[in-house]
Design a protein around this nucleic acid. Structure first.
Lengths: 180, 180
DNA sequence: GTCTATAATTTGATAGAC
DNA sequence: GTCTATCAAATTATAGAC
């Protein structure tokens, strides 16, 4: 991995994806990346600082990976299918939940700064999806479609995760793409 | 409230709904119900025991409140709309998340017994919804519709909760009922 | 940047009196 | 059933040496 800071972020990311904000500690992260907890504090002074950094890191990475919906259409790709594929690949291949889905569920128990950063993930994703639906000709119902697509994805990951059955994810999302 | 055991369950329920499994402690619950933490341990020896009890309590309460879909249809009610209303009322009126939605998201970080009980919530809800869709004439796609309805509800609560905007919940679910 | 050492607090849990 | 008292472990965080 590139550097210690990124290693810390990605370790914390995985831990949050498995058990939420309270499922990572400075000591556990330190052990995983091979340093001491005080050194983790050097990079991220408080737990809230690290939480904000992880949420921001995850959001930027996710949006960047999607690309621009206009560009996708220009090369003949359906941006909504690409969007569904982004969550599907992370969930099916790596069994990764949406980091901000977990944080968003427990937002009332989070430090304000982490809650605000979590909110930003959803604002940016709804913008992206709304733009994509607009590009596909939806004028009045673009945002409602965006909300539904985002919600069904977040929900499908939770239900499939709880049942420990990835087929549930496929079955829930199959109306987006009948081929598998 | 009826008795101490129920008070403990409902206190833990609220705490989990706000921040997940790691967001409640025996001491906090004890303080809330006016006893000492050792007395909470008397009722529920371990944290996993209490977690299982809360998940079971919540699931039974939720399913019982729904009633039987066949009975609902018999009195002219749409069981799917009733199902949506059950989550909507808890979320809008009391700002309550689905307890098992939170637990389901962090299932990898839960004790096995709590994870198993969480899974049961989803099994029973999918059964209920599938049965309801079958009653409405869906033969081959009843289960897929059940999964989609459950997922969109769980997802809509998370997105709306993260954005701290209940209108998002209404907008996401409005295709189930145009009137508000 | 990383370390040792440590502080202050919280946590899940138990023993035993009443 | 509830209490006091206590424990061992884990947590977030800081001070200061290298």
């Amino acid at each position: 991995m590139e550097n210690k800071e990124t290693e810390i972020l990605e370790t914390a990311e995985r831990m949050i994806q498995e058990g939420g904000y309270n499922a990572f500690s400075f000591r556990e992260i330190a052990k995983a990346v091979g340093i001491k907890s005080s050194s983790v504090h050097y990079h991220y002074p408080t737990k809230a600082d690290l939480g904000v950094a992880v949420a921001s890191y995850y959001t930027d990475k996710f949006i960047a990976h999607l690309g621009d919906p206009v560009d996708l259409m220009a090369v003949g790709k359906d941006p909504i299918r690409q969007y569904v594929a982004a969550f599907r690949d992370a969930f099916i291949k790596d069994r990764r939940m949406c980091l901000c889905g977990l944080l968003g569920a427990e937002v009332k128990g989070l430090p304000n700064s982490v809650a605000a950063q979590t909110k930003l993930f959803f604002v940016r994703n709804i913008e992206w999806l709304t733009h994509a639906y607009e590009q596909q000709g939806h004028t009045t119902d673009a945002r409602d479609n965006a909300l539904r697509t985002l919600s069904i994805l977040e929900g499908a990951m939770i239900v499939s995760n709880a049942l420990d059955d990835v087929d549930v994810f496929y079955d829930t999302l199959k109306h987006f793409d009948e081929t598998r």
